[in-house]
């Protein structure tokens, strides 16, 4: 009843961090167009297991586009071509029968490949460690209405805070820069009164960790915004630039 398609997958296979890795071709048949991209990989993996082969490792968790775990570069684009969509929310109806799909891991020095399509994004956690929070201890807070926050600022802060930390921005950037990720976090707090006390120290510490992790510099290509499944604006990078300059003088 369902419409199905058959495809050829060209998938990056790499046993571990030391393995040089290579592409392998896999034909997949009769995939329902209602299946998600990851479900299509599930089907292939079940087939591989039954054939006694090692299934393709890929990260995934919530499969509803919010946890930021999944992600691969599909035909040259992180999370595939569809805008504002994570790989788990990309459905096969966007492909045609007979297509060849090339699937590669996110590529960045700061994201070493762990296995196949799985990369290590702990560099993001280390950046957050340096200041992606307001240093308030449980129990210290005043009443939630002690400080009013202008709605436009609160809304902009929320827009920035929507980042799911999937790292598609880095994968898409020709320089493998993490400026959109860091910009979003710094913006979220720079826009709120709660974030003011640590505003300068946060911008300095997070940028310095970002550089130490080996991410590239931003050259205003805006590929990050195009790849971001949450549509986070590059104006957050502009704000990061401003915050950094402000905190340097």
């Amino acid at each position: 009843m369902d419409k199905t398609i058959s495809l050829t997958l060209k998938v990056w296979r790499q046993k571990n961090a030391e393995d040089p890795g290579k592409f392998e071709l896999y034909p997949v048949k009769d995939i329902s167009i209602d299946a998600s991209f990851l479900e299509m990989l599930d089907v292939l993996n079940e087939q591989l297991v039954l054939e006694g082969q090692v299934p393709i490792a890929f990260d995934h968790d919530c499969r509803e586009g919010i946890c930021g775990t999944c992600g691969a570069v599909v035909n040259g684009r992180p999370h595939g071509r569809l805008s504002k969509t994570t790989l788990c929310q990309l459905h096969m109806r966007h492909y045609s029968d007979g297509d060849t799909i090339v699937i590669e891991p996110f590529r960045a020095k700061a994201f070493p490949v762990v296995k196949d399509l799985v990369v290590d994004r702990s560099s993001f956690d280390r950046i957050v460690r340096k200041g992606g929070y307001v240093s308030v201890r449980t129990g210290q807070a005043p009443d939630a209405h002690a400080t009013a926050v202008s709605k436009p600022d609160a809304d902009l802060s929320m827009d920035a805070a929507q980042c799911i930390g999937c790292a598609a921005c880095v994968a898409a950037c020709p320089n493998a820069s993490a400026m959109l990720f860091v910009g979003a976090k710094v913006s979220q707090y720079a826009l709120l009164p709660q974030g003011q006390v640590e505003r300068k120290i946060r911008a300095q510490a997070m940028v310095s960790q970002m550089d130490a992790e080996g991410f590239g510099a931003c050259s205003n290509e805006y590929e990050c915004e195009a790849a971001c499944p949450k549509g986070i604006s590059v104006s957050n990078i502009a704000r990061l630039n401003r915050e950094f300059l402000r905190s340097s003088i």
Partner: peptide, 22 residues
């Protein structure tokens, strides 16, 4: 109630009204 206080202090961007309150 303490949870809301704490989360606001953490910078959780809850929805607000034009007056600036939650």
């Amino acid at each position: 109630n303490q949870i809301i206080d704490h989360c606001v202090a953490q910078g959780v961007p809850f929805a607000r009204e034009y007056g600036g309150y939650l």
